[in-house]
Design a binder for these strands. Structure first.
Length: 491
RNA sequence: CGGGGUAUAGCGUAGUCCGGUUAGCGCGCCUGCUUUGGGAGCAGGAGGUCGGGUGUUCGAAUCACCCUACCCCGACCA
């Protein structure tokens, strides 16, 4: 399955692509830019969904579902929103096909032209705010805290599995509040949720901050983000949370009567993470031997592989393995006992290694005699033989160690690849030759950011929220600045 | 949308320049036997409208023209 797998060093882009395909997570489909998420990849996404969904509900949100198709006119109601998305919208113009005159296949029935064209949602702010208008009349209807799990379509020119596809899966939270303060708190709270998810579950350290105006969401007053550093030194935006001010409330005329009996526009937020997180997860930890998954998101945490010559040996090993499987499951650990006779142990070792199963247990005739078991860790590739007595506690402990080790490794990688830079020459050199995050002063203008991007392809990934204020001079223009921002080349 | 490239079995490819046997090879697949502690060995077997169309020719995977799809680089983007 995974022979001829390139190393990260040889060809990072190829490594990523092959990894996704050969580990059976996803593949390209018949539709350009759209992928098929295969069962193994989808299982990982489902685990992410389950955790995030619980976090959303624990913070008071409820799920709902809004339509895939949005009337074109809705889009033009919020000026910067249209401008941001117009170029990448798929449009539905007809509602019927008919047999083609030459009898070969079907053609669009021109008589079935829609009165008003429909847009396939690239995001749902407009349809949701059109709906919220009906739901909100009084301060007693607020806050309104809704999330939806959905697919969206953005007609991208160049796509990459999970990282950027034409159709992708995500969740989008949309909330309405009586005050500006409360809405800002909401968007910050959800950013914290994302950061916690990334760090505790994905074992991926992230920087929290706000976007520069250039990178801000179309229609937002402020965009908060979490940014992660990938192994090739490029930054990946892993999640965003937007304070939308009253922009959408004004565009869709959503007002409420306050306690003081005054008619006011509501304050809004939206926030989302997508299947792009899969790409982040894959790139954060995987190595030249394949996928590496943090135990908390691995669909299978432990695999047990029997080694045997004869049927009778398998029967004996199975007794031990099934008992062990049950003991592990009782601890809430997901276990697969792979007793397939159609593949050999060595083949299975490679298969599970490539798919990133955190812990592999092997039991053979020798182990039966000695009361032992072989334990292999995916993160360090270490193998060790232990007494089988009480092994379930040992395994539980190892899973925790792996989760922790992956986070620490990713964190020291980020630290090693974060550079404080004060001169323009050094800036260009680091971006060009080392990659990673560059902490530099910026004069706060779009013009400077544009020029830096044009010359180096680096953009401001985030303006750190917990950044210390520090007097300095813009690395490009020399104008005064009071905080360092994070530059990088980005996905 | 600009620039470059590719299309031959499920996957990866040889053959194309210079037209001429039954289109070859590796992996994978099927059957049998031997194997099983890091991708097993041997033997036998199945699988191809050579991306599509038109043309040139006695004869086209190979030459010409048109079309389509995909990949890489750039502009755009979560």
């Amino acid at each position: 399955m995974a022979k001829n797998f390139p190393t990260r060093e040889e060809n990072y882009a190829q490594w990523y692509n092959d990894l996704v395909i050969k580990a059976d997570m996803a593949e390209n489909s018949a539709v350009r830019g759209c992928m098929v998420i295969k069962p193994y990849g989808y299982a990982i996404w489902e685990k992410m969904q389950a955790v995030l969904d619980k976090m959303f509900k624990d913070t008071g949100h409820m799920n709902a579902y809004f339509p895939l198709l949005i009337p074109k006119s809705f889009f033009s109601k919020e000026a910067s929103h249209v401008e941001g998305f117009a170029k990448e919208c798929a449009v539905v113009t007809h509602y019927r096909l008919k047999n083609s005159p030459d009898g070969k296949g079907v053609v669009v029935d021109e008589d079935a032209k829609l009165e008003e064209e429909l847009i396939i949602r690239p995001t749902s702010e407009t349809i949701i705010w059109d709906t919220y208008k009906k739901w909100i009349q009084s301060y007693r209807d607020l806050p309104l805290l809704v999330n939806q799990w959905a697919n969206v379509v953005r007609w991208e020119m160049r796509t990459r599995l999970f990282l950027r596809t034409t159709e992708f899966l995500w969740q989008e939270g949309h909330t309405a509040h009586a005050t500006k303060k409360e809405a800002i708190e909401e968007s910050e709270k959800m950013l914290d949720v994302y950061a916690e998810f990334a760090e505790k579950w994905m074992a991926m350290p992230v920087l929290k901050g706000v976007k520069s105006p250039n990178e801000r969401f179309a229609g937002a007053v402020e965009t908060y983000c979490i940014e992660a550093l990938m192994q090739d030194g490029k930054a990946l935006q892993a999640g965003t949370s937007h304070f939308l001010g009253q922009n959408f409330a004004k565009a869709f005329d959503v007002k409420f009567l306050s306690k003081e009996n005054k008619l006011e526009y509501v304050w809004a937020t939206s926030w989302g993470v997508s299947t792009r997180l899969m790409g982040a997860l894959i790139m954060a930890h995987s190595d030249d031997k394949g996928l590496v998954l943090p135990p908390k998101l691995a669909p299978v945490q432990v695999v047990i592989i029997p080694i045997y010559r004869k049927e009778e040996q398998l029967a004996e090993i199975s007794k031990v393995a099934v008992k062990l499987k049950e003991a592990l499951q009782a601890k809430g650990i997901s276990v697969k006992f792979d007793d397939r006779d159609t593949y050999k142990p060595g083949w299975k070792f490679n298969e599970y290694e490539f798919k990133g199963i955190p812990v592999r247990l092997a039991i053979g005739p020798r182990d039966l005699e000695n009361g032992t078991i072989e334990v292999a860790r995916r993160d360090t590739l270490e193998k060790e033989t232990y007494q089988i007595t009480d092994i379930e506690n040992k395994v539980e402990h190892i899973l925790e160690q792996i989760q922790d080790n992956l986070y620490q490794k990713a964190l020291s990688f980020r630290e090693d690849n974060t550079h404080v830079v004060d001169s323009w020459d050094e800036f260009k050199d680091v971006i060009e030759n080392k990659g990673g995050f560059v902490l530099a002063h910026w004069d706060g203008t779009s013009e400077t950011e544009d020029k830096i991007k044009a010359e180096t392809k680096a953009t401001i990934r985030t303006i750190p929220m917990d950044g210390k204020s520090e007097e300095g001079a813009c690395v490009y223009s020399g104008k005064p600045s009071n905080q360092r921002v994070v530059f990088a080349k980005a996905y």
